[in-house]
Amino acid sequence: MLRRNLARFAIAALVAALAATPAAADWSLLNLPRGVSELSREIYGLHMLMLSICTTIAVVTFGAMTVALLRFRKSQGAVADTSLVHDSRLELVWTVIPVLILVGMAVPAVARILHIEDMSGSELTIKVTGYQWQWHYEYLGRDVAFFSRLARSSDFARQPGSGIDPATVENYLLDVDRPLVVPTGTKVRLLLTANDVIHAWWVPQFGMKRDAIPGFINEMWFRIDADRPGTYRGQCAELCGADHGFMPIVVVAKSPAEFVAWLEQQRATLARPE
């Protein structure tokens, strides 16, 4: 009786699960993006290396467990070998092999860290300040600065009871009123800080995130591939209060010539920065 009811419940749950899955599923969003910068590709490569090592480890250990569970079942008449309680050689093997694997993982990781932390040779520096809840960008030495906040369309739609279906809003929660504009093929350095609480600046396509901490200045850099101009989106990654989910980052990458033109135009139309 109970069993039948449970079975019915399980089937009902399964049906509900399938029905609730949106029809237009985008199942491609499964992995880290390869990204559009020098660092993001390196990090992606390292991620894939770690993923494949860990998957291999998983296959081997889960395989051994599964074989044990299939072969040594009491219901199949397996009799326990109670003398198998210790084997120094085996134990040494499964201590040493993991150490070797770890060394193999650490070597490329160290190289990547050194590259990420190498801030030298940057050609453009932008100061990024986190506010509750918007970003402020200042092109150091270029007389251009502005705030960047959630686009109005998203802001309307996200209000509780707005009646607006987020699916109808373009780039819902990933759009801003004024994007950050940077040149492609150029080493851009960001100086990050915050005005109130800790925020974090993250654009997955650049492979990097870094905290923006009040009272401190953090650094990060990226160089967008020369052949990859475009619009790249990200979000604040450190919980910074009620509207933490609503302070996106949008970066428009232009060719260096277009970037210079854009900068000129900004200088002409903007009041000088405060």
Partner: peptide, 8 residues
């Protein structure tokens, strides 16, 4: 290894 050659 505890599972191995056990009677599970």
């Amino acid at each position: 290894a505890t599972l191995w050659r056990g009677s599970i």
